[in-house]
Each structure stands twice: as C-alpha cells, then as structure tokens.
Amino acid sequence: MELKLNQEQIDRLYRFTREHFVEHYDLQTELVDHLSNAIEEVLKKN
C-alpha cells in the first residue's frame, strides 16, 4: 500500500519551511520533497 501526502499536507510543509525562515522557493521545494519522503516512509512503517 502506497501512502502519499495530500495537497493540504504538502501546503502545510511549505508553510512550515516559510515559518522557519526558508525564503527561496527552490530550497523550500527541496526541503518539502525530503520531508514528505521521510514522513511517507514513517507512515509505511507504522
């Protein structure tokens, strides 16, 4: 079973990066990609 974050959850990760002073969109996107992959892996294991 493949678990994927929905758009609302992805948007929340973008907000999280901005709240933590990551201003550049390309860096935000890279961080969101890594964070979402890590979250999806945790969800798979649990």
Rank of each mutant, 00 (worst) to 15 (best):
S36G: 07
V42Y: 01
D26G: 07
K4V: 02
H20S: 09
V42A: 13
E40T: 01
L31D: 00
L27Y: 14
D11W: 01
E2C: 04
E41I: 12
H20E: 10
D11P: 10
L43A: 03
T17L: 05
Q9F: 10
T29H: 10
Q7K: 01
V32T: 14
Q9M: 00
Y25H: 11
T17E: 10
L43H: 13
D33W: 08
H34L: 09
Q28F: 13
E23P: 10
K44T: 08
H34G: 03
N46T: 07
F21V: 06
K4L: 07
H20C: 11
T29P: 01
E2A: 12
L3T: 07
E23M: 09
E19V: 03
F16L: 15
Y14P: 07
K44S: 13
E8R: 04
R12T: 15
E40Y: 04
F16T: 08
L5W: 04
K4A: 08
S36D: 03
H24D: 15
E19H: 10
N46A: 05
E41V: 01
N46I: 07
R15D: 09
V42I: 14
E40F: 02
Q28M: 15
Q7R: 04
E2P: 02
Q7Y: 00
H24E: 14
E41M: 02
V32Q: 14
L5D: 02
S36M: 00
L27G: 06
Y14R: 07
D26F: 10
Q7T: 14
E23T: 14
K45F: 05
H20G: 11
V32P: 05
E30W: 06
E23Y: 14
F21Q: 13
R12C: 06
Q9C: 11
Q9Y: 11
N46G: 10
Y25R: 14
V42K: 07
K45P: 02
Q7V: 05
